[in-house]
Computed example of a mutant assay.
Amino acid sequence: MRVSRRVALTLAVLLLSGCASPAWDDHDYGLKAAQSAQSAASSLEIVRLAVRDEDRLTTPYLKTLFTETVKDLGSVNSQFGGVQPPSPAADEVRGRLLDLTGEAEDQVASLLIQVRRDGIEDPAAAVKDLEGVATKLRAFEEAHL
C-alpha cells in the first residue's frame, strides 16, 4: 500500500509542476507577459552580441548558443502560452507577445541554420534585425509593468 501511495504522490507532483500559474486578473496577466518579454529580450541580446562578435567566436560555440536560445524562446512561448488569459483584453496581450516571441525564435533559428551551413550571411543586418525585435519586446515589457 505504501508503494502505491508514493507512486500516486509522485505522479501528482509531476502533473502539478507542469501547470502554469493562473493569472487572476488583467494586471497579473500583464505582469506575467512583461516578465516573459523581458526573458525573450535578454536572450536576444546575448545572441545579438554573439552575432556582432561572431568573427571572434567558434562555430561550435555559436551553434550551441543559438540552439539553447531557440529552446529558451520556445520555453517562454509555451510557458506563457499556458497561462489562461482572464479577459478578451488579455487575449490581445497574449497574441501580441506570442507574435513577438515567435518572431524572435524564428530569427535565431534562421541564424542557427546559417551557422550550420556556411556562417552568418550578413552579420550587420542580423544584428539590426535582432535589435529591432528586442526593442519591441522591451517596449512591450515597459507597457505591461
Results as ranks from 00 to 15, higher is better:
46 I>N: 09
31 L>T: 10
91 D>P: 08
67 T>Q: 01
27 H>V: 15
117 R>N: 14
20 A>C: 06
141 E>C: 15
16 L>M: 05
72 D>Q: 09
111 L>S: 05
132 G>K: 07
114 Q>M: 09
10 T>Q: 10
40 A>E: 00
70 V>Q: 00
95 G>L: 08
112 L>A: 14
140 F>K: 03
120 I>G: 02
54 E>D: 10
72 D>V: 03
117 R>H: 13
125 A>W: 06
15 L>Y: 10
72 D>H: 13
72 D>P: 10
112 L>E: 13
122 D>V: 08
39 S>P: 07
5 R>P: 06
40 A>W: 02
17 S>P: 06
1 M>G: 14
2 R>H: 11
52 R>L: 12
46 I>P: 10
4 S>C: 15
45 E>F: 08
105 E>A: 09
1 M>P: 09
139 A>V: 08
87 S>N: 05
106 D>V: 07
85 P>W: 04
104 A>S: 06
34 A>W: 04
85 P>Y: 04
129 D>C: 01
45 E>A: 11
28 D>F: 07
144 H>P: 06
38 Q>D: 09
42 S>C: 09
114 Q>L: 08
90 A>H: 07
100 L>A: 00
140 F>R: 03
76 V>H: 00
24 W>H: 15
69 T>S: 01
37 A>E: 01
128 K>I: 11
10 T>D: 14
127 V>F: 03
84 Q>H: 14
136 K>I: 13
122 D>H: 10
24 W>N: 11
136 K>T: 10
104 A>C: 01
15 L>V: 08
52 R>S: 13
117 R>T: 12
98 L>P: 00
115 V>I: 05
118 D>N: 13
83 V>E: 04
57 L>V: 08
80 F>T: 01
42 S>F: 13
40 A>L: 04
42 S>I: 10
130 L>I: 08
3 V>C: 11
23 A>H: 11
109 A>K: 12
54 E>Q: 11
71 K>I: 09
6 R>C: 08
134 A>M: 04
113 I>D: 14
69 T>C: 01
118 D>K: 14
76 V>T: 03
86 P>I: 03
50 A>S: 05
77 N>D: 15
27 H>A: 14
135 T>C: 04
36 S>V: 01
87 S>W: 04
